[in-house]
């Protein structure tokens, strides 16, 4: 089913299929990511949410279908053009993917050192600015192993945002965090998106909390995007699969089942 959303799509997945051996993970994913908006991809475990993200990032190639970024099929362009497109990306990985051998400062400074010709003084200023934005100033010399999971996420986000990307991808940004730290991550996300105005794509399980941040919610079910709607439309949808997902994720069904069992 083609997602029913309006606006200017910056990323488009068109009939994307992917199999690993006998497992058909993506069975024709169609999804438009709108510029300047926050699109949240939800779905049960093993439905292919992270796979969709990997396809958009160009880390995995589809068996069939297209992944368009700014109208360009990223699987049919030259490596250097893909590299150019990736300069517009920022990614917060599920486990933050910080470099163990580098301290916090060097982790955030890495994209600046490798991709810009800024002086060390300018790099220091930019890194300090981003770390302050994430409320992790004062931890510059610590290594990833010495900081908490929540701090790792914030440092990872600082690294993702240090070059002011146009699109930022979040792969399960609150996995492994307690409620307080999850809220901190969402607060930082809201603050930075308001300030920097980037397009956000969030893969998350964190329903219904994530609905408050989303402009659009896409449900991935059984290898296809069931639908992509605004959070309000999504919660009121009559589609039986979406309805079941909402009820399960938001409570009533879960509660009644629990009551029956008890």
């Amino acid at each position: 089913m083609k997602a029913k959303i309006t606006g200017n799509p910056i990323v488009q997945l068109v009939d994307v299929h992917k199999s690993y051996g006998p497992h058909h993970i993506l069975k024709g994913v169609n999804l438009d990511i709108m510029e300047g908006k926050t699109t949240v991809i939800v779905g049960g475990s093993g439905q292919g949410k992270s796979q969709v993200l990997k396809h958009v990032l160009g880390l995995t190639q589809p068996d069939r279908g297209k992944v368009l970024v700014n109208g360009q099929d990223i699987n049919r362009i030259k490596k250097k053009d893909l590299k150019k497109i990736r300069t517009e990306f920022g990614v917060l990985f599920q486990n933050s993917a910080l470099f163990d051998s580098m301290n916090v400062f060097d982790n955030v400074a890495l994209p600046l050192r490798e991709r810009t010709s800024h002086s060390e003084k300018e790099i220091r200023e930019l890194v300090e600015e981003k770390l302050a934005m994430m409320d992790v100033s004062g931890s510059n010399d610590k290594f990833p192993a010495q900081i908490s999971g929540g701090m790792k996420k914030r440092v990872g986000l600082a690294r993702a945002l240090v070059l002011n990307p146009k699109i930022v991808f979040f792969d399960e940004p609150t996995t492994g965090l307690d409620v307080k730290k999850s809220n901190e991550i969402y607060r930082v996300f809201y603050k930075t998106q308001t300030q920097l105005g980037y397009t956000a794509v969030i893969v998350s399980h964190d329903v219904p909390k994530i609905f408050k941040l989303a402009d659009y919610v896409a449900l991935l079910n059984n290898g296809i995007v069931q639908d992509c709607l605004t959070p309000e439309e999504f919660q009121l949808s009559n589609d039986p699969i979406i309805k079941q997902y909402v009820e399960t994720a938001m409570g009533p069904l879960y509660s009644s089942e629990m009551e029956d069992e008890l």
Binding site: G58, L59, L110
Partner: peptide
């Protein structure tokens, strides 16, 4: 993957 995504 992070390096790839940072265009490094």
């Amino acid at each position: 993957d992070a390096l790839d995504c940072m265009a490094i």
